[in-house]
Simulated scan of single mutants.
Amino acid sequence: MDDNSLYDTQIFARRTKPHRSLSRAGFLRLLMIFSAMSFCVTLPFVIIGAWPIAGFMGVDVAIFYFAFRANFRTASAYEDVILTPLALHIEKVSPRGQRRQWRFNPQWVRLERQEDEDFGLIRLALVSRDRQIEIATWLAPDARAEFADGLSRALAEARRGPTYNQA
């Protein structure tokens, strides 16, 4: 096994993303329902001559639309954690597409957990010398604990070193 194959062999690879329970199709349905309800509420006011209410209700629909649009934009962010026998790569991509990357030696990195007895695992960070990077921030506490357990096992495997098959 040569050194290049050690870089390519992934022991652990996981992408975390912000959770969104509403799909785009669901959002369009919700927007149509909200707009229809707004129109039904506005129509009697327009009929009796209080037409400025229509403008305020239109602003409500616009705020509703732009709030969900911003919410969907933040859902495009993600975080990749890739562990090979020789390196731990972390890449965080913001909703605007800005990338930040870190690389650690698996021999020197440790996983730091902050747990709360009521809420579970509330913070997970990688620590190596003077650097500390918080990871899996979008996951729920139970999913974050599962992620931490998998990464801990993978780090232990990477610390043991590569295994060579005896032929």
Score class of each variant (00 low, 15 high):
Arg159Asn: 01
Phe147Arg: 12
Arg96Gln: 06
His89Gln: 11
Gln101Lys: 15
Arg103Thr: 11
Pro106Ala: 03
Glu112Ala: 09
Asp118Arg: 08
Pro141Lys: 14
Glu91Arg: 09
Leu121Asn: 11
Ala140Val: 14
Gly97Asn: 02
Leu155Met: 09
Ala140His: 10
Phe147Thr: 01
Ile122Asp: 13
Leu155Gly: 00
Pro95Trp: 13
Arg153Phe: 14
Gly161Arg: 09
Gln114Phe: 05
Phe104Lys: 14
Pro106Lys: 09
Arg129Ser: 05
Ser152Ala: 15
Glu112Cys: 03
Ala143Arg: 06
Pro95Leu: 12
Arg100Trp: 05
Ser94Met: 10
Ala136Gly: 03
Ser152Gln: 09
Ile122Val: 12
Glu146Asn: 07
Leu83Phe: 09
Pro85Arg: 15
Ser152Gly: 03
Leu121Gly: 00
Arg131Ser: 06
Ala136Leu: 05
Pro141Cys: 07
Ala136Pro: 02
Leu86Phe: 10
Leu124Trp: 06
Thr84His: 06
Phe104Pro: 00
Ile90Phe: 10
Gln107Phe: 08
Leu121Arg: 06
Ala140Ser: 14
Glu117Met: 14
Glu79Lys: 07
Ala154Thr: 14
Val127Leu: 05
Arg159Gln: 07
Asp118Ser: 15
Ala145Val: 02
Leu124Arg: 09
Ala125Ser: 09
Asp142Cys: 05
Gly150Ser: 02
Leu83Pro: 00
Leu121Met: 13
Asp149His: 11
Pro141Ser: 12
Glu112Thr: 05
Trp108Gly: 11
Asp80Met: 12
Leu126Trp: 02
Asp80Leu: 06
Arg110Val: 15
Ser128Glu: 07
Arg100Pro: 00
Pro162Tyr: 04
Trp102Cys: 07
Pro85Gly: 11
Leu83Lys: 01
Glu112Lys: 15
Leu155His: 03
Ala158Thr: 01
Gln98Ala: 02
Ala145Ser: 08
Asp149Ala: 09
Trp108Phe: 05
Asn105Tyr: 02
Thr137Trp: 04
Leu124Thr: 01
Leu121His: 03
Gly97Val: 02
Gly150Asn: 00
Arg159Pro: 00
Arg160Lys: 09
Phe104Gly: 01
Ile135Lys: 08
Ser94Lys: 13
Arg113Ser: 06
Thr84Tyr: 14
Gly161Gln: 13
Val81Tyr: 02
Leu155Phe: 00
Thr84Ile: 12
Arg153Cys: 12
Glu115Val: 04
Leu155Thr: 01
Gln132Thr: 02
Glu91Leu: 06
Ile122Thr: 13
Ala143Val: 04
His89Cys: 10
Glu79Gly: 00
Pro162Arg: 14
Gly161Thr: 00
Glu115Arg: 08
Ala148Tyr: 01
Asp116His: 15
Glu112Ile: 10
Arg153Gln: 15
Ala87Gln: 13
Asp80Ala: 11
Arg96Leu: 04
Glu157Ser: 11
Phe119Arg: 11
Thr137Met: 12
Tyr78Phe: 08
Leu121Ile: 10
Ala136Met: 12
Arg144Glu: 01
Glu134Gly: 04
Arg99Cys: 01
Gly120Met: 11
Trp102Lys: 05
Gln132Gly: 06
Gly120Glu: 02
Arg113Lys: 14
Ala140Lys: 15
